[in-house]
Design a protein around this nucleic acid. Structure first.
Lengths: 142, 142
DNA sequence: CAGTATATTGTAACTTTTTACAATAAAGGA
DNA sequence: TCCTTTATTGTAAAAAGTTACAATATACTG
C-alpha cells in the first residue's frame, strides 16, 4: 500500500482510473522533494514498474497536472518539470547556473487578482518561474 | 539594407558576429507582430536564406534571447516561442483554447522588486506567461 | 463473480530539439 | 587586400517529446 494511493479516491470520483503506471509515477514524485524532468521520472518509475513506457509518462504527467495533483514548472532551459502539488509556491531560477529557490505565493496573490479583473481571464493558478541571477553568479561576474 | 541590421552594431560591439542567418531570423521576427515557434521561424526565414538549418535556428533564437534582442515565452503546451523584445509585457494564455492577451509590465514591477530583495536573485527580467481561462471558454463551461 | 463500456496503455512511427565536431566565414590587423 | 583568429555554421546522429490506433484492463453493472 503505497502512499501514492492516497490520491486514488479523488481520481476515481472524477471518473478516472487508478493504474499501476499512475501509482508508480506518483510514488516517484511523492518521494522526491523537488521537481523532475519527464526523463528522470521515467527512469525512476521504471524501477517500480518495469513495463512503463515514455508516452505513458508524458501523458500521465500532463494528466496529473490537469487534475491538480502535480504542478509543472520550467527549467532554466525552458523545459517542463514536475513536482507534487503542495504548498503553493513559485520558482526563481538562475539563468547562469540553473540554481533555484522558491517564492511563496502570497507575493503574487494581488497580481493574480489584478490580472483576473483587468483581463477577464479567470482561474489563473499557474505556477510561475522567474529567471534571474543568483547571488553566487553575481559575484562571479564582477 | 534590412531593418534587422539595426541590431548589427550592438552585436559586433559585444564581440559577436553578424551573419546572414541571424539577420534572416531577426527579419522574420521583426515583421511578425507576435511570437513564433522555432518551426515557424525556420519555415519563414528559409525564404530569405534557403540554406538555413534547424540547429542554427534554435541556437540563434537562444542567442538573441540571451542578448535581449528577442524575448521567449511559453505556448499553452509549454513550448518556447519567440518575439522581438519591445515594450515590456507578459502574457495570459487560455489553458482551454490557447487564446492569449498581453499584460503590461507595470502590474508586475513591484513583485519583481520584492523578489529581488527577498531572494537575493538580481536582474529578474523574464517574461512571464500566466495560464487561465478566457472569457469565451468560461461561458462554454457553464 | 462474470460481462460490458470505455479509459488507459503499448507499439510504432514521426516530429521536434539537442549535441559534437569538422568546415566555414566574419572581423580585425598587417 | 590578404592573413589570422575564432565565432558561427552545417552535418550527422542522438535524445526528447508527440501522435494514431489497436490491444488491454479498470471499474461499474447485474
Amino acid at each position: 500500500m503505497s502512499c501514492a494511493s492516497e490520491y486514488a479516491p479523488q481520481l476515481r470520483a472524477r471518473g478516472y482510473r487508478v493504474t499501476p503506471q499512475r501509482m508508480a509515477i506518483l510514488h516517484v514524485l511523492r518521494h522526491e522533494g523537488t521537481h523532475l524532468s519527464p526523463a528522470e521520472v521515467y527512469r525512476k518509475a521504471r524501477k517500480d514498474f518495469p513495463g512503463l513506457t515514455e508516452p505513458t509518462v508524458y501523458r500521465t504527467l500532463e494528466f496529473l497536472a490537469d487534475n491538480g495533483v502535480v504542478r509543472s514548472s520550467q527549467s532554466s532551459k525552458g523545459h517542463l518539470t514536475y513536482e507534487i502539488a503542495g504548498e503553493d509556491h513559485h520558482h526563481v531560477v538562475c539563468r547562469i547556473c540553473g540554481s533555484e529557490i522558491e517564492v511563496e505565493h502570497a507575493l503574487l496573490e494581488n497580481v493574480y487578482k489584478k490580472i483576473e479583473s483587468t483581463s477577464g481571464y479567470m482561474r489563473i493558478d499557474s505556477h510561475v518561474t522567474f529567471f534571474g541571477v543568483c547571488p553566487k553568479c553575481q559575484r562571479k561576474k564582477l
